[in-house]
Design a protein around this nucleic acid. Structure first.
Lengths: 148, 148
DNA sequence: TTGATAGTCTACTAAAACTATAGAATTTAT
DNA sequence: ATAAATTCTATAGTTTTAGTAGACTATCAA
């Protein structure tokens, strides 16, 4: 039930992008190197991850001097579930309970497959959390923890 | 967030072992070949899995003619969480929220790490389901689905 | 217009994990 | 003895993961 480094790094980067205040404009723009240094992520690896996130429409970027990455939408509109799915694929433990990548499993009757029932519950539990937690929610929780 | 084939096969085998009624005695004894045929699991692979489960204390076995595998405890005492942990390792998406295989992550302060908070919730959601679902519960749900 | 900065894109590689397969050894019942 | 089972260790093929490399393109400022 593990999250890959790819997924972890991507989430950390998005959280930082949402959480860094920008006095100069509407959104914070961070460079790969900045994020990689702050979060101790290999720069070239992070580069790939951010590019993937960009191509999926979650990030925008600006090339050249003073450029970098910034969120394509407000933090309150980006869910962790979306990020994880892009980087790590379906949330479901087994394909036959996946909403986005369903595949039939080998069981004779899906309706009465015990494993399928339980794993369906697990999928729903994971999806309920990740699809209902936005980057804004994360920022808020961090803030609350800091001030306590 | 995927369950490996190993984990899936192991769970299916345990569910079958719990669900097969045995008119001759207190517990059903099934052979590797029987399970592998019924569930379409490669026999040699299943062999390893059952052996692992046996060494972990969840199964007992009998060698020789008329032998096979049977549950070491009543189905109501065996949780899916236990089985998954034996075959697939910790339930936690990242190590820093694992109860049984904790490792510190790179974040500067664990108390205020947003990713850690959310993944802690995910871990708890998964563990709540799998640690509170026994083989007996699964059998009951299957029975209910069959008769409806 | 040149140089520095920063993202884009594709390919590649090493290591680990996953999914098995092989085969010899051991135990048990008849 | 023989057949039926599990036991145990090694190994092999494939896929995934994690990371590296390098050439290319866009932007800005002097």
């Amino acid at each position: 039930m593990r999250l890959s480094k790819r997924g972890e790094y991507g989430l950390r980067a998005m959280i930082i992008l949402a959480d860094t205040p920008n006095p100069e404009g509407p959104y914070p723009v961070l460079q790969i190197r900045e994020i990689s240094t702050r979060e101790k992520i290999p720069a070239k690896f992070l580069e790939q991850i951010l590019l993937t996130l960009k191509n999926a429409g979650l990030l925008h970027s600006k090339m050249g001097v003073g450029g970098g990455y910034y969120l394509a939408k407000p933090p309150s509109k980006i869910t962790l579930g979306h990020i994880v799915r892009i980087l790590d694929g379906p949330l479901a433990p087994i394909r036959c309970v996946s909403q986005i990548a369903y595949e039939p499993c080998g069981c004779p009757d899906a309706k009465t497959c015990g494993l399928r029932m339980v794993m369906g519950d697990v999928r729903n539990a994971i999806a309920t959390i990740l699809d209902n937690t936005t980057l804004a929610d994360v920022a808020q929780r961090v803030e609350a923890a800091r001030s306590s």
